[in-house]
Design a protein around this nucleic acid. Sequence first.
DNA 1: CTCTGGAGA
Length: 711
Amino acid sequence: MDRKRKVDITGLGSTSTPAEDAAKKRNMGINPFTGAPYSRKYYDILEKRKKLPVHQFLDDLMDKVKNNQTVVVEGETGSGKTTQIPQFLVEAGYGAIGEGCVACTQPRRVAAMSIANRVSDEMDVNLGDIVGYSIRFEIKNGPRTILNFMTDGMLLREAMNDPFLAKYKCIVLDEAHERTLATDVLMGLIKEVLKNRPDMRVVVMSATLDAEKFQKYFDNAPLLKVPGRTFPVEIFYTPTPERDYVEAAVRTVVQIHKCEDPGDVLLFLTGEVEIEDACRAIRAEVEKSQDPTKEGELAVYPLYSSLPPAAQQKIFREAPGPKFPGGPVGRKVVVSTNVAETSLTIDGIVYVVDPGFSKQKVYNPRIRVESLLVSPISRASAQQRSGRAGRTRPGKCFRLYTEQSFKEELLEQTYPEILRSKMSNTVLTLLKLGVEDLVHFDFMDPPAPETLMRALELLNYLGALDDEGSLTDLGNKMSELPLDPQLAKVLLASPDYGCSNEVLSIVAMLSVPQVFMRPKEAQKAADEAKAEFAHIDGDHLTLLNAYHAYKQNGGSKDWCFSNFINSRSMVSAENVREQLGRLMGRLELRMVSTEFTARDYYTNIKKALTAGMFMQVAHLERSGHYLTVKDNQVVSIHPSSVLDNKPVWCMFEEFVLTSKNYIRTVTGVQADWLVEIAPHYFDLENFPECEAKHDLEAVYRRKDKSQQRPK
DNA sequence: CTCTGGAGA
C-alpha cells in the first residue's frame, strides 16, 4: 500500500493530506478524531492552552522537526511543553490512525497516566482511544491510538520485540535531563534506529542547563528554548558550613515559622527515618516556645514513597487557620525525600529548606555491590529544589551550605543513573535488542568497562550468554521477564525442581517493597507477628509462608494490618505474580508443585533459588563471621533476618552498607547443592584460597568417593 | 541490632 497516498477523509472531495483535512475540520469546529463538534470544555481549555509560553514556538518547532530528525527542546517548568508538544506533533500528522503513532516517554508511571488524562481532555477525546498510555500492569490504548504516553521502561520493553520501533513515527523523550537508565538506553537505541528510519522524528525535551549535551549527542540537533512561567525565588546561603544538617534544618524551619510571612514550607531530607525524626523534632521545638498570640499553628507532614497513600494525601491539606478569630494564620511544613523534587508538586510552597543532601545509588563493581549513600546533591538538583518555592508566588530558598560550596563543590549535574548502577539487567536488554558490541554502543555516558565486564560475567555464569557472548535460548527467555537476571534464572529453573508455583510466589514477594512492617511505636508486636511466619531455613521461605497466609485469609486488608504486613506490598506482589505467571505461560514453563508433605518440598524450593542466586553466597568462617564467596567481604546477617542458626553457607538477596555490611533476605544452603547446581562457579581451579574453598574440597572428595563406590 | 531515593509487557 502506498503510505504517502492522499486520502479524502473529509468527504469534501479534496485531495489534501490527512493533516490538512483534520485542520480544516478543526476550523469548522469538528473534532477530526471523533467527528463530533467540539465540547464547551474543549474551548475553555483551548483558551488556557493558547496562553502557555510554548504556544508561541509552535511554528518554529514544527519547522525544525520537519527539517531535522532530532530536535532538542529546553523548557522550564510551566512552559507547557509536556502537554502541548505531543499534540502539536499529532496535528502535524506524525500520528495518524492506522498509520503511526506519537510516543511520549516519562520517567514515572503517575506522570504518564496523569498527562494522558489531561491531554485527552484537551483533545476532547476519551482516554484510551485516540490518546492513551502504557505503563506496567496497565495498558490503556487501542487500535485508534495515535498519541501514547508511556514510561521510558515500557518503551524499552516494546523495543525488545520491535527493534525499529515501527509503530512510532515520532518519539518524544520527556524529562531527558533526569537521565534515567531507561532513557539513556533508549537514546542510544533511537540513535541507531534513526539511521534506518529516515521518516522518524525524535524530540528530546529537557530542563535547563544541559541541553547542549543532548544537542551534541544527537549530531548537533537544533535547539528550541521555551521559557517557563515561574516566580522569582530569593536564595539564602549559610555563612559557614553546618555540622549537623538535620539539626540546622529543624532550626531553620522553626525560624521561618516564627519570623516569616505566611506561606508553606518544604524541607528536603534523605530518608524515612530521618524525616520522621525531624518531624518529631520540629513539633517539639515549636511546642516548647509556642506563643499563640504571635504565631499560628504549625502542621508538620512527612512525605516519602513508602508512606501509605492516605498519609501522602495529607500534604495537600490547607495550612491550619487562625486559632482564634483575628489570630495569626497557621502554616504547614512538608518534610520530604526527593519525591517532592520531581514526582510530586505541592502548591502553596513559598519556603524551601535545602540541606543539600539526598540518598543516591552507588555501584562498586569490584565487590558487585549497589548501595544507597547520603551524598551532596548537584547544582541542577539544588536549582530544581529552590524552584519549588516559586510555583504560585515569589518565594525564598534557604540553602544550608555556603555559597562557595554551591559554586565550587557541588557537581553541575547528578551523575546519570547508568554510571551508578549494576548493568546486568541493562546488558541483557541490550543483547536482546541486538546490540552485540557493547563497548562501542553509543552511550551518552558510557558505563565503566569493569561494570560491563561484571554484567557479562554474571550473565555468562547464569547461562544467559555463551562463551562467545551471544544470547542463549535461556538468555532470551530471561530477557522477557521484568526481573533482575538472577531472579529470572530462579524462575526459569523452578519447573525443573518441581516448585514453580512456590518459587513464583517468592519471586513476586521479592519484587515488591518491604512486606513486613515494623513501626517504631510497635516494634515488639511487629516482631512477634513476623515470628508467626518465620521458617527456620530462612527469609525466602518466610516470605512464602506470609504469602500463603495472606491467600488463606482472602487477601484481607484487616488481616494484613493486624499481622504487620504491608497490604499495598501484598497487592502489588499479587500483580507481579500474575504478570510473571502469564509470561511463564507464554514461555511454556510448567506450573508445578511438590507435594507439601514430601520431604523435599522445601529442599526443592531452596535448590531452585540456588540455581539463580549462587553468586550471592556467604560462608561462615571459623572466626564466627561471614565472608562473601569470591569477593571476601566481611558481612553480618541483617538483624531483620529470621535466620538464627548460623548455617555454614547461605545465599542472600541483597548486600546493604549501613552501619555495618549486612546481607539481607538470607537462606541457608548446602554446599552439595552449590557444587551440584553451579559447578562452573564453584570450580576449585578458579577459586581464591580461603576457608570456603577447603569446605568445598571436602564436598568434592566425598562426591568422588561415593561415585567410586560400586553399587 | 535494623535506616529504601525513583522505575519495570
